[in-house]
Amino acid sequence: MEKRWISLFVENDIGVLAKISGLFAGKAYNLESLTVGMTEDETVSRMTIRLKSDDETFEQIKKQLNRCVEVIKVIDFTNSPIHMKELLFVKIRKCSKGDMEELYRIAEVFGVSIIDYDPESVLMECVQTESKNNDLINLLSSDFKTIEVVRGGSVAIESISKTEW
């Protein structure tokens, strides 16, 4: 079982998201995250899908997706040079003064913006790769008691230079 990434171009129509997520559910494929949004062409939406599967199942998933009338193009991003980022918000509450200082330091090191706060709380906005976001969440949850996390799932696009990930 390996982690895989698919970028999917679909018709921007009613029910297409349900069709794609239903396909994963109905065939017991292991869907980990799915983001969707309109592209420069408003009739086309683009999904970034993270899933876990073995090689054979992955081949089958791509074929099943391709088979859907609503699917325009399936791109396997797993081994392509891409830029991929995930939006993450973390709210930390019930902070002491020392906690606040620590949080500002963490924000600086991780390249995270603090976009809102009050004397006891901090709201961080983080646009990083998924694994960096995981690191941040791990750190925060071990050091702070009251944290609230919301993450958007990754979006990805092919690199121009074809070298950078």
Partner: peptide, 16 residues
């Protein structure tokens, strides 16, 4: 019915 038959149809569509 489109939702109900989504996984047993080649294609399903509502005329909008």
């Amino acid at each position: 019915i489109i939702g109900i038959t989504r996984s047993i149809c080649k294609y399903g569509v509502i005329v909008n």
